[in-house]
Simulated assay, not measured.
Amino acid sequence: MRTKKANACDHSCLMCRYVMQEWLGQIDLHRKNIKLKKGEQFIREGEPVRGIYFIQSGFVKVHRNLGDRETIVRFAKKGEMVGHRGISSEQSVYPISATALAATQLCFVALPFFLSTLRINPELSYRLMLFFADELHLSEQKMANLAQLSVKNRLAWSLLLLHRVFAEGTEEGYIGLELSKKDLAAYVGTTYETVYRMLAELADSNAITVDKKKIFLKNKELLNKLATEKYGE
């Protein structure tokens, strides 16, 4: 992980988009740029909270360990924030880890400055509340899926979600995030072997096409049907 003096920023992240115009200069004074290589971890579960990270380019997986198994909580892209789960009045450590999935550039601000920014910029506080609400809703949906959907159906739901989130800038139908089957399994909540088999079944039914780490959604109607089909239906 390489930290360097902040250079020009396009101010496209969540924080910069919703602060007062005159506060952008303060952000430029307090932020640091961090360059990561693919596979480089920049947050470790249980470490003291240092601050908040905003993605300027690249992709990041947010994950945690449950016993000896890794679970991926979410994937994040340009403009999104990582490390906010460490904001709490009752704890001072990160409850998650975060790792770059590709060459990635981050903007980092220390936690005290970020909290001051929230106090001074009500629009940012409001947008952050909505961000937390959306993230909570998605987490609850994933928990419900574990109880109500088969692995194949959870995989269909996950592929549709990933396509919706990462479709920008890619050819129609493709998921704009290349994932290993190991990471996809950790996101769906199953094993590598099972996700490999389920991908093959979806491909055989012409729902998707798989080319190494690239996934093309060939039949979204079928995937939508699977994603809403609960056990026993």
Rank of each mutant, 00 (worst) to 15 (best):
L138R: 08
Y174S: 15
G173N: 12
E123A: 11
F108M: 03
K213Q: 15
F113I: 01
D134M: 06
L162S: 14
L155A: 08
F108N: 02
L136I: 15
L161S: 14
S180M: 04
S150M: 04
P112N: 14
D134G: 07
E178Y: 08
S139C: 00
E140H: 13
S180E: 11
S150P: 00
D183W: 00
A144W: 06
C107H: 07
Y174D: 14
P122R: 09
N153E: 07
A156I: 05
T209H: 14
E123M: 10
I215Q: 04
I215M: 07
L202R: 02
E172S: 15
S116N: 12
R154Q: 03
V188K: 08
M198A: 11
A156Y: 04
A186E: 01
N145H: 12
M143V: 15
I175T: 11
N153P: 02
L162M: 13
F131G: 13
K214E: 15
A167G: 03
I120R: 13
I175Q: 10
P112I: 10
K182H: 06
I120M: 05
H137L: 09
N121K: 00
S139G: 02
A133F: 09
K181Q: 14
M143Y: 14
V210D: 09
L160H: 03
N145L: 03
T170L: 03
A110E: 11
E171V: 12
N206W: 07
T117W: 00
L124D: 06
L138I: 04
S116H: 08
T209F: 13
A207Y: 08
L124H: 03
L199G: 10
L162V: 10
K213F: 05
A186S: 07
L136Q: 14
N121Q: 02
L160C: 06
L136N: 11
S125T: 09
E201Q: 15
T191K: 07
K214G: 10
T190M: 01
V165L: 08
I175V: 13
Q148N: 10
L128I: 09
Y187K: 01
L118I: 10
T209V: 15
S150F: 01
E172D: 14
Y196K: 10
T117V: 07
F166E: 02
D211K: 08
T191Y: 05
L202N: 05
E193I: 12
Y174V: 11
N206C: 08
E123K: 12
K181N: 13
V195N: 02
T190F: 02
S125G: 07
L136H: 09
L111Y: 09
D134P: 00
D134K: 07
E172L: 14
T209E: 15
